[in-house]
């Protein structure tokens, strides 16, 4: 269907005049081809390659370059990045802020990464923090939280949340939660659950009080994943099963209900999938090993059809009008 055909459809219904159709047609014919996102992707890729390459390069040549020179270089680059970000700042607001400058979000991100590099370096070489590793992790976390809020950057915010979790000895990024966290340690399961719940609660408060309400999704996503996986790990490996089940199900219901409030169906999906796993596991436990295999096909066939029916009608169930 070409532009002309769309315009014909509109004029035939009398929605636009022929003159307006001509204007739109010539606009479509003359409009420039935007390569905005392609250029941004190239820039991002370049930053990623450059910083990785530089990191390895420096690491390989530490002996010849000398530590002071490298530290000075990283520090200078970092200061330049933060200075540029600060110079082009826009006034702080609790709402979402759009910075007209195109480079600020990138310089902020590089600056934060360089800060990590610098700190890691100082600790590695001069054991700046001694054995107080907690302080070493907490410092960048605090910096990232402050800069994320001040300059309105969700990327830095997720780095900050990650830092907060590392401070508790956890990893939080969605995939590495499963890959890297060792959930056989009971203490870790509990702290992961609590941190996850706290993050989710903070997301709720952010939304309620409009403290950077658009940050809520980042908190929900990272915190929710952590809490769900921790409760699942708890239910699978630890006693009492019911406590973790209740935690998980409450969270799942909260996520399903909050999908409506934050206008993101990702949370509906998370709630349903994690909730489904919880319920399935509990049922399998209750039924016992002998019967599980016999009933599995029937259970999965009908329960998944049930979930499909729920998803097809979720607007009705959740009372969403549109």
């Amino acid at each position: 269907m070409t532009t002309t055909e769309v315009l014909n459809a509109l004029t035939s219904k009398g929605i636009i005049s022929n003159k307006q159709a001509d204007t739109i047609h010539s606009f479509e014919a003359d409009k420039a081809f935007s390569i905005h996102w392609e250029l941004r992707s190239i820039l991002y890729l370049g930053i990623l390659l450059f910083t990785s390459g530089l990191g390895i390069l420096i690491y390989e040549n530490i002996d010849t370059i000398g530590h002071q020179a490298i530290i000075a270089l990283i520090a200078i680059l970092m200061v330049i990045c933060f200075w540029y970000t600060y110079k082009h700042r826009v006034p702080f607001s609790l709402d979402e802020v759009h910075n007209p400058n195109k480079f600020v979000s990138y310089t902020l991100l590089i600056g934060c990464m360089l800060f990590l590099a610098l700190e890691g370096y100082l600790q590695f070489q001069y054991t700046l923090f001694g054995t107080k590793y907690g302080a070493a992790v907490l410092l960048p976390t605090l910096l990232f939280f402050v800069t994320a809020y001040r300059f309105d950057h969700t990327g830095v915010l997720s780095m900050a949340i990650t830092g907060l979790a590392s401070w508790l000895g956890l990893t939080i990024a969605p995939l590495s939660v499963i890959a890297k966290s060792d959930f056989t340690d009971g203490r870790l399961v509990w702290s992961a659950t609590l941190l996850g719940v706290l993050l989710v609660a903070f997301a709720w408060i952010s939304n309620l009080k409009s403290w950077k309400a658009h940050f809520a999704n980042t908190y929900l996503l990272l915190g929710g994943n952590l809490a769900f996986i921790a409760t699942l790990a708890g239910a699978f490996t630890m006693e009492p099963l019911f406590v973790f089940f209740l935690f998980g199900i409450t969270l799942a219901v909260f996520f399903i209900l909050s999908a409506r409030r934050v206008h993101s169906l990702l949370f509906l999906l998370m709630g349903i999938v994690y909730g489904y796993v919880h319920v399935t596991y509990l049922l399998a436990k209750l039924v016992g090993n002998e019967l599980v295999f016999g009933l599995a096909t029937v259970y999965f066939t009908f329960s998944s059809i049930g979930v499909i029916l729920f998803l097809l009608n979720y607007k009705k169930f959740l009372g969403i009008k549109r």
């Binding site: 990623l48 990464m113 990590l116 890691g120 590793y133 070493a136 992790v137 960048p140 976390t141 990327g155 997720s158 780095m159 949340i161 990650t162 830092g163 590392s166 000895g169 956890l170 990893t171 939080i172 990024a173 969605p174 995939l175 590495s176 890297k180 990272l222």
Partner: peptide, 9 residues
């Protein structure tokens, strides 16, 4: 978060 955010854990 996935690629950069791994602070020394």
């Amino acid at each position: 978060a996935e690629s950069l955010g791994d602070l020394p854990a």
